[in-house]
Write a protein that binds this DNA or RNA. Sequence first.
DNA 1: CATAACTATAGTCATTTGTACACTAGCTCC
DNA 2: GGAGCTAGTGTACAAATGACTATAGTTATG
Lengths: 201, 201
Amino acid sequence: MNGLKSLTERQAAVYNFIVEKIQNRGYGPTVREIAEEFGIRSPNGVMCHLKALEKKGAIRRSPHKSRAIELVHDSVQRERGLVLAGRVAAGVLHEAVEQNERIDLGDMFHGPNLFALEVSGDSMIEAQIADGDYVVVREQPTARIGEMVVAETDDGDATLKYWYPEKNRIRLQPANSSMRPIYVQNARIRGVIVGVVRKIG
Amino acid sequence: MNGLKSLTERQAAVYNFIVEKIQNRGYGPTVREIAEEFGIRSPNGVMCHLKALEKKGAIRRSPHKSRAIELVHDSVQRERGLVLAGRVAAGVLHEAVEQNERIDLGDMFHGPNLFALEVSGDSMIEAQIADGDYVVVREQPTARIGEMVVAETDDGDATLKYWYPEKNRIRLQPANSSMRPIYVQNARIRGVIVGVVRKIG
DNA sequence: CATAACTATAGTCATTTGTACACTAGCTCC
DNA sequence: GGAGCTAGTGTACAAATGACTATAGTTATG
């Protein structure tokens, strides 16, 4: 995805050192700082690496400027946000074809195992979740009784419901008194709902 | 709070320029780049500002290094989030004593005129806003008919309601069929609701 | 009014820093 | 075997850059 795989081991080490300096210290290293870090005794040894990194698109530089190393990928800053994985309806979970879409909910909701789904339909309206809302889902394979989950049934449909395992079946309970619960033999939990976000206007 | 208020206008301008360069270009400016930007014809003119900024704690510098300006506050990153201004009930708006509390909703909700309120009570339950939810409010003195607002009446009470101005009065309409609308002669709009966020579990 | 703080000009100096050149050496691929 | 890539050493140089001194106008502040 980011093309950094094509870097050699040494180049990657240099790149990581540069990133680390920029992140932790706020400004990048000089050629000689890099040389010292890696025990390279000539500025030109570093120049070779920088030229290689620039050619491979990892960094950008301005000639004759000190510390003027610009990170092209800037990965640490751009990875904020949750993957918007698609829409979940009373019926089918429409997985987003393009998983590039992200919504950034800041510190409130973030983590490697969280993702977001847009809600379609009013099956959870009495749980104060309306059509068009986003639910934040923590990816996990189990849930406690009564938790709201994104569940996938045998026929591949996914749905947003309360999770009630019973003796020989599973009851998927909507929060809408005009709808009836769904009973299935098997269902796989995709995740548990940990948040709701609505944008108005 | 962050002490940046004590900066002079000129110093703040220089500081903002530095921040902008670091954010957009990835590395900070040199003394002479700052001088050129502000039409200062001597490096020493800038040195004075940098010394002042360092003394006031806005930046940190390493002597004899080029572009070695470190942002202490890193304000762009730390000023994320909305002020959690208090709780708004069917009744009184309890303004938070400590306005330090912030909730970070990322790119989804951010801006200088946005703040958040925790909802207390079920007066807007049929608008899918429950007790304990947070509403995101855009601060503004007017609203269109039917918009959901935070309104403050003459007696100082603030409330979360639909906004319906009528001929000789204002109707503040709850979204709860077991509650009656409130009619007042005057009411001041604190802001319009632009979002709802709920954390579950 | 005096003092401090802020802002600025002009010019100089020493250091930092990127760049270039010459040369070496190992490795892969055709 | 040569071309190309990687990874260096060592030296030298010029440009970039921060730091400094001296001087001075302005605006607050007491």
